[in-house]
Amino acid sequence: MTSITRPSISRPSLSALPGEAGQLAVYDWTMPANKPLGTVLLVHGLGEHAGRYGEVAAHLHQWGFAVRAYDQQGHGQSEGARGDLLRPGSLQADLCRVIDDTRQRPALASAPLILLGHSMGGLVVARTLAEQLRPVDAAVLSSPALGAFPNLLQKMLLATLPRVVPHLRVDNGLKAEFVSRDPDVVKAYKADALVHRRISAGLAAWILENSEKTLHAAEKWEVPTLLLYAGQDKLVNAQASADFAYAAPQTVVQAQCFEGMYHEIFNDLYRAQVFNALKRWLLARFSA
């Protein structure tokens, strides 16, 4: 087991930014004392919120990076119906708003910008890059929601419901015990009042359609990307991450599978391995 010193986790400051479905809650962790090597913008997954990424932010600070995050619409402390999607494309539009706001901040404007998206957040990051909505310097995809293949009944429902009742919300079906192999993480996830279990027909259809689009875009990928994924993921399709890495240019996308881990690799029992892989990749590109 790889060991790593866990840094102290500071509380982020919160601010609000107008988004597609109302105000977005934006998190800023205390800046490193020196000029940052870059800014990492965190994008969380379905049903959760950015406040769960304090340990990730602490490690990034320890390595010299500024850290921002935000709650996506319908999640955490942001506005919007829980688990809903205002319209197709609105998740990317919200990310673009936060990117623009980050670029306008004097302390961050000249620093390289790295997007780090987990699960559904990884898909939002991937679509924003594939559609070339904003230029960024690099990206990290953590267990991204790629290549979701529903069964025949689900396909039939998603072919009809989003057109008729796109904002109809149901249970998202995610089983908490498959979030992490760390029982303390699972316990905290279940007790977290800001974690919800809703997903709308429109959001489910968006995930399905855009996960496929992202796989097809892999061979033309241009943004330097680190793809980290769990080999025992039971919440997203791990094979799809392997397929993306195989199809993408090897000089652009570096991938690593953590064979025994569950979905939240940054919250795994052996997450030191993941943090070490992230640190090596970031400092190889952005270290002074």
Rank of each mutant, 00 (worst) to 15 (best):
I4W: 06
S8Y: 08
I9H: 15
R11M: 07
E20N: 14
G22N: 05
W29L: 02
N34R: 05
L37F: 06
L42A: 12
V43H: 15
E48A: 15
Y53T: 12
A58T: 08
H59G: 02
G64P: 03
G64H: 01
G64R: 01
F65H: 08
V67E: 01
D71F: 00
G76S: 02
Q77M: 14
A81V: 00
G83L: 06
L86C: 05
A93M: 06
P106I: 14
A109Q: 10
L116R: 13
H118K: 02
M120A: 00
G121C: 10
V125P: 05
L129E: 08
Q132T: 08
D137V: 05
A138D: 04
S143N: 05
F149P: 08
L153A: 10
L153D: 12
T160V: 15
R163P: 01
G173I: 11
K175H: 10
E177F: 13
R181H: 15
V186A: 04
D192V: 03
V195G: 10
R197M: 15
I199H: 06
S200I: 01
L203T: 07
L203W: 15
W206Y: 06
L215S: 10
E219V: 10
V223L: 04
V223S: 03
P224M: 07
L227M: 02
G231S: 00
V236P: 00
N237K: 03
P249Y: 09
Q254R: 02
A255Q: 07
I265S: 04
N267T: 03
D268P: 08
V274W: 01
R280L: 14
L283D: 06
R285P: 04
